[in-house]
Nucleic acid binder design. Structure first.
Lengths: 235, 235
DNA sequence: TCAAAAGTGTTTCGTATACACCCATGT
DNA sequence: ACATGGGTGTATACGAAACACTTTTGA
């Protein structure tokens, strides 16, 4: 068969907004570019989609190269395709966002790309439309996390209730009532209490919990409103 | 400045899933392809992104060429980028979905592309991954419509309560209690009652309503759950 | 007068929210 | 003993859902 001979091919990139949580602050992994264009400026990590990979494979590859991590939850945000968003050459970029447990991230790789965790409140000016990409990812994160238990991806295997609450408070930039929060949390049936306590942040210590993986998967797509029983309907 | 010389450029397309509602059934606008590859097979309408347009501009152009309509609500679904999704040549396609009032669609243009409204329950086998694209768009539509008043885009300027209800019932494939439905509907403050009645579907006649455009815009992003007051937080 | 669709109210129940005190422990 | 953060319970209010009858009018 022949090709679509009269059409223009375009550079396609992926850019990854990588969120992390250190127990106190929500952060994004940014790199200081070691190459042109915009050398030494901050940006999110990205790369071009190669002939032998799908965009999501490209995003996973980029994530792995930067952090050494695989099998991480990633999701598309949206496509950024303005004609002049990259001054060198037209490039259409597919945005992805990922959640990683900040301590799994190996710092030895950091130096290679001059990568750093930057507090979400202190993002510097980035190249191209990368600030906008982060805004979009953050908005999507907030939207999704209000309806689905997605933020657990940011927590270590064992975590405490005060830690989760701090995470939600970071994401939404507001304080939550701990009594109502913990009740809601437990009512999901997602948490399994462990015997061990985290004594690092208080004298009394806070119990560790882990995710009930089965009900986590089962409940991931659940949410409510407008339609009487959307859980049953959205499948 | 020089180009990213070592990278491979890729064909980028947009494909538009166009939803319509005829007062009874939810439908999708499909075309019978008049060109190779897959001539005479059904597909959704799409086109390649041109050098002088962004993907969303391309989607609007495709929609206009097919339906004659402009300024229609469109939104990205996701990117479909498997290496072999188009057997002729690798093409990355950005999915869009649109809602149009079915009667605004001019049938004279239909013939040009052999376009037809197909009931959502009766989608034939389509080329490439187009069936999957429709599934994704439909899922997204259901998700979004459960939280936001998006389905009004499918209705004519004047509509009746039984019509909206029928639309929701089509979208979710389930029956709704009309007492609860109308109460919820009116509580949004989105509707303005008109004097005129629609007598076409009953002897008694049903009152027409129109959208309160101001509160429609104000309320578009509202919804609830998991976080105490997400409306205030998502902005 | 009857059939067919439109329109309207009440009760019940569950969940969201507001709110304040006791517990455990290291210093 | 006390300061610090962890953990728990209750009362109220609001919204969701279940449920059935009356109205209008063309045939």
């Amino acid at each position: 068969m022949r090709k679509y001979s009269k059409q223009t091919r375009i550079l396609v990139a992926v850019d990854c907004i990588i969120f992390g949580f250190d127990g106190e602050r929500l952060k994004v992994l940014l790199i200081k570019r070691g190459f042109e264009p915009e050398k030494d400026k901050w940006s999110v990590m990205g790369g071009f989609v190669q002939p032998d990979e799908s965009p999501s494979e490209a995003a996973s590859r980029v994530l792995k190269v930067l952090t050494g991590l695989e099998n991480i939850y990633m999701e598309q945000t949206e496509v950024f395709g303005n004609i002049d968003r990259d001054p060198i050459e037209r490039t259409i970029s597919i945005g992805y966002y990922a959640f990683i447990e900040i301590n799994k991230y190996k710092t030895q790789i950091t130096d290679l790309y001059h990568a750093e965790w930057i507090d979400i409140k202190e993002i510097p000016q980035l190249i191209f439309d990368h600030n906008h990409m982060i805004d979009v990812a953050l908005k999507k994160l907030r939207y999704k996390a209000a309806l689905h238990p997605i933020l657990f991806e940011l927590l270590p295997e064992k975590f405490t209730v005060p830690q989760i609450q701090a995470l939600y408070e970071q994401v939404y930039g507001s304080e939550l009532d701990k009594r109502n929060f913990s009740r809601k949390l437990f009512s999901t049936g997602l948490l399994v209490k462990l015997q061990e306590k985290d004594k690092s942040s208080s004298k009394k210590g806070a119990f560790f919990y882990k995710l009930n993986q089965d009900s986590y998967k089962d409940n991931f797509e659940k949410f409510l409103n407008f339609i009487p029983n959307p859980q049953a309907l959205l499948s």
